[in-house]
Design a protein around this nucleic acid. Structure first.
Lengths: 209, 209, 209, 209
DNA sequence: CATGAATGAGTCTTCATTCAT
DNA sequence: AATGAATGAAGACTCATTCAT
């Protein structure tokens, strides 16, 4: 973590085999982080899980952190991709859809991110990534809220930025908690609640029922 | 070699000096976790910060984990103590007060807890502690919501348990985020927003203004 | 922290170089135990003596104890192998041969074993090994004595078990003492004496002269 | 173990209470060595067993080695005192008596000594003590054998020195082994065997029966 | 004298990274 | 590219000894 490197800088794999190994390592690393957390994430464990030899790790990654960054980047892209919401006219339906997708697709990814949040506290690169992701979500929600306010559909007294932070935090935190609970929650019911709470919170009248 | 432990099993300090050192170590440890996160939390760092020699660590704690557990316990107790809300008649005032106290007193404590959540993934003791704390909050909110529903002041269609998890998550997450942002938020404004969002979400009419 | 072991669990060396290093470590470890005793036996000393870096120790051995067990096992095997006596018809010649081989080959091995006897007092694995070895010797002597008694060549009034313990102890102890004395003994003369004492003790007439 | 000392040199205890504490520490230390072996022998354990505080150790002993030396000295004196054999006319009776006393009184003391033999390999003081003790026994046996040879009662072809080493070793080793066996031996029967083996070995006719 | 806290060098072990093949 | 051995700095923990009260 931050030692000077004298290794040949890994380049993009040139052969198909190389790409396979590279991807296998990323997949293995991600699985390990998701399932064993920070402590289990070692080059040894990753290479073993990927079925290659120890040394191969450094053929593809500059360092453990390098792999981590790539994993996080992938998780982040995935989260954001999974969160694209189709352009629905009904604002409430939009909220429901956004929450459903977030919970469905991002539980594990969110866990990876949060793991990093603490484990790699000192790595500015990673912190930057995390902040970007959060900002993306906050900005998107912020704009949505502002639009609704302009349209007279949401409480104009709310600060869109603070509101976005708070409601986004709610969803983010729930996404993580769900994966940690012993007794599993009914996800669809949670989506329903999150959406209704969100809507009511900003003054958008949720559908009757 | 299976050598029997021969060091004095740490006992409660018998002298005033002992108690001072003991407390200094806990304080130093906590500060380090809060500020440098998991990675910086080493016996060496803790003893240095406390201004005592390395070996002194083990005069008071059986292990690094032992200290960690004590720090977490303290943080948890503190959070819960700080969250006691005076018995206010006005439900909205109650919500505001609860949020204000939570944000004021528990940002760092919450961060400690979250740190542990991932770093000590495998330690059942700690996981148990964390679950207890969260349950405490969820249960308290749940009861509050139920009371309001019974009194006809809150949306009777909401599941109090899911709602408590979601809104509690919102506050918890905001408490942590606040401490991570570069540009500091106006805490009092955030308290106001959290409270209004919470109230509106459950259908409790927030005060006009 | 209950962190899972992530270092490669030592496996049999896969390459010739690996085997060389592995063997060098065992040899170095053994020499250190023999010459400096328990206190000098540290991973650092062993690796230094073997001319490799500290970390290499754990490429081949799970722990200090692991190496110790392997050394003891080797010493034990060696002792027993060196003690095989060719099937001689003359009982006295057999005794001489057994003693000669024991003293020649096992002085240091016996010392290693004795060292462990006390140093690793608590390790049941090792204690088991030691008991096995002693039992092997006792059983063998016991059978020899019994045969001679049956053949009318040895005092039938002796309990073969107790006798084997006592005479075996004599040889074992002498083997160790020899290596500790400043003024070296004439080993061949000691073999002669041990054999004559042994033979006379059980009533087997030693050869005249 | 060999660090420079800056402690006030402990002097002989001046008060009765002091002497009691001093003796209690020696007794406790000895018991620990006898029962838990080398590994359990720490100032902490000793003081605890003696019911005094940690620091008190250094009021009475310069170092851990200092206590050890005193324990060994005491064990040695005790062994030698217990081994004094009354002047019996019958040489065989003398042998029996010597062995009986040795086994009866010295099993544990012998264990202490042997422990030291390996544990404190590097301490010349202790090694000297051990050698002295062994020499005492060897010399005594040697003289006895020589006397019997002169009196025409023992095989004149035996080297008294080598013979004394061997037979002394037998008894010493048996004394230790006895204490290590799970299934306890009948000590009196072992005394009988040792004596008969010893006598026969040197050509002294043991009593019929 | 007794107490118990303080000290810090030493020991075992881990693991990210490098290197020879 | 792949392999697996080698490296060594860093971390957790121990314990004989010292010292303030």
């Amino acid at each position: 973590m931050g030692r000077a490197r004298t290794n040949p800088a890994p380049t993009a794999p040139a052969t198909a085999r190389g790409r396979r190994t590279h991807d296998a390592l990323i997949a293995a690393g991600r699985e390990i982080i998701e399932e064993q957390g920070w402590a289990g994430f070692t080059p040894e464990a990753v290479t073993q899980a990927a079925g290659v030899s120890y040394g191969t790790f450094y053929t593809y990654f500059e360092s453990k952190d390098d792999l981590l960054r790539k994993i996080v980047k992938a998780a982040a892209d995935e989260m954001i991709a999974a969160s694209r919401v189709p352009d629905l006219d009904d604002p409430y339906a939009r909220i429901v859809e956004a929450n459903r997708r977030y919970l469905a697709a991002t539980g594990k990814a969110a866990k990876v991110l949060r793991m990093v949040e603490h484990g790699a506290y000192l790595d500015d690169n990673l912190r930057g990534l995390l902040l970007e992701i959060r900002e993306f979500y906050v900005r998107r929600s912020e704009e949505g809220i502002r639009r609704l306010q302009t349209a007279g559909l949401a409480d104009p007294g709310l600060d869109p930025h603070l509101t976005a932070i708070a409601l986004g935090g709610m969803v983010e935190q729930v996404a993580v908690i769900i994966n940690e609970l012993r007794e599993p929650l009914d996800t669809e019911k949670m989506v329903d609640h999150l959406s209704r709470l969100w809507a009511s919170a900003i003054g958008l009248r949720p559908p009757v029922g």
